[in-house]
């Protein structure tokens, strides 16, 4: 072990400075992908949860829809991110579906997030007291109005701690996309390391990641404490 190298190799100011523009573009990509994944993931998850709770009472349609959605959710929850991503990026071309690294990443991680989001929203909706439904329907409110004005506002509020938790987990996992050469923060850092023959950019990227996620992790803990539940 050569500890004297730590300064020269891990915290080399000159290299870090030169690598900064590369890392910056990587960060932008990471953020772009994250935002799209969160948007699509939450959206699809919410829609699926609404469909599932909405059809829960009906006999045949409800059971079929419930089964299909549960299948979708369970399969995605059980799939390792990188394996799924590899399948989407390397496997689908065999069917003629050639996605860019950006879209392969977005589709894979949105799907995974949507599964977690569906479970969370569904649990939130089911946690709302039956009496709220009954009172709203007794006034003559339609199913949609009841959902929109009474149930969802309350359900989303109690879902927020779990949602933030999963969002942090998924956005961290997105860094795996560097393995399929998505030019995100990690990939750019590895590239910079290659160019400068010095791992300081890697340390730099790690620091940026921690600075990015540290407040989010703290936020999740704060929300969990404030609104209950050990997620």
């Amino acid at each position: 072990m050569d500890l004297s190298g730590i300064g020269r190799y891990f915290f080399n100011g000159e290299v870090m400075l030169k690598a900064l523009p590369l890392l910056a573009s990587g960060l932008v990509m990471t953020l772009k992908v994250s935002c799209v994944v969160i948007g699509i993931g939450f959206g699809v998850g919410l829609i699926l949860a609404l469909i599932r709770t909405g059809t829960a009472k009906t006999r045949v349609v409800g059971k079929v829809v419930g089964f299909l959605i549960r299948l979708y959710v369970d399969l995605l929850r059980a799939s390792p991110y990188l394996v799924l991503l590899s399948f989407v990026y390397f496997g689908l071309p065999f069917l003629g579906v050639n996605l860019s690294t950006f879209w392969a990443t977005v589709i894979t991680f949105s799907a995974c997030l949507s599964a977690f989001a569906e479970e969370t929203f569904r649990a939130g909706i089911e946690a709302i007291d039956r009496g709220q439904w009954e009172a709203a329907r007794s006034l003559g409110l339609s199913f949609f109005d009841t959902m929109r004005h009474i149930i969802l506002p309350q359900a989303i509020r109690i879902s927020i701690p779990a949602l933030t938790n999963w969002t942090v987990a998924i956005t961290k996992a997105i860094s795996m996309a560097s393995a399929i050469a998505l030019p995100d923060l990690l990939k750019q850092a590895r590239w910079a390391q290659g160019i400068f023959a010095n791992p300081s950019p890697l340390i730099e990227a790690a620091v940026i990641y921690v600075l990015l996620f540290f407040p989010l992790v703290k936020l999740t803990l704060f929300l969990e404490r404030k609104w209950g539940k050990l997620v």
């Binding site: 007291d129 009496g131 709220q132 009954e134 009172a135 709203a136 007794s138 004005h149 009474i150 506002p153 309350q154 509020r157």
Partner: peptide, 12 residues
């Protein structure tokens, strides 16, 4: 109109 035992007012 219906009035419930546990009121069921909308808390938000």
């Amino acid at each position: 109109g219906m009035v419930f035992q546990h009121f069921n007012l909308f808390p938000h």
